[in-house]
Simulated assay, not measured.
Amino acid sequence: MRTELVIIDSARKRGYADDDLLHVIANAIRVIVQSDGMTMYIGPDRAGRIMEVGTIERSGREIVAHAMRPARPKYLAEQPRRSRR
């Protein structure tokens, strides 16, 4: 079951529609869990433009705290695979 999603002002500062942010999360082509606790969703907005949307989890809620279009190259590049030893 998905936690409650809450969009805060920092994710809205560039003027993206909430529906676009939610669309990216629901249709992510890549999900990256970062060491700082933020989860980055990389995927298309409703017009098909690739965005990055960052969330953090607090008190059982997923907080949408970051959004940027276009997604930065570091999130689009193929992640290196770790060797198994």
Rank of each mutant, 00 (worst) to 15 (best):
M1I: 01
R2E: 08
T3M: 13
T3L: 08
E4Y: 01
L5Y: 04
L5S: 13
I8C: 03
I8D: 03
I8F: 00
D9F: 01
R12M: 07
R14M: 02
R14H: 14
G15H: 05
Y16M: 10
Y16V: 06
Y16F: 10
A17N: 06
D18M: 01
D19H: 05
L21T: 07
H23F: 05
I25R: 11
I25P: 06
A26I: 00
A26S: 12
I29V: 13
I29M: 10
I29Q: 15
I29F: 06
R30I: 04
R30D: 15
V31S: 11
V31M: 12
I32T: 04
V33F: 10
V33H: 07
V33L: 10
Q34I: 01
Q34M: 08
D36V: 02
D36K: 06
G37I: 01
G37C: 06
M38E: 14
M38W: 07
M40V: 14
Y41G: 05
Y41C: 10
Y41P: 01
I42W: 01
I42L: 02
I42C: 02
G43K: 08
G43T: 06
P44Y: 05
P44S: 11
D45M: 10
D45N: 12
R46M: 03
G48H: 06
G48T: 04
G48F: 02
M51F: 03
M51E: 10
E52C: 02
G54K: 07
G54L: 06
G54H: 09
S59A: 14
G60S: 09
E62N: 14
I63D: 09
I63G: 11
V64K: 13
V64G: 14
V64P: 07
A65F: 05
A67E: 07
A67H: 02
R69I: 11
R69D: 09
R69C: 15
R72M: 11
R72F: 02
P73R: 13
Y75P: 02
Y75K: 09
L76K: 09
L76D: 11
L76I: 06
A77C: 07
E78N: 12
E78I: 09
Q79R: 15
R82G: 14
R82Y: 02
S83A: 14
S83N: 12
R85A: 15
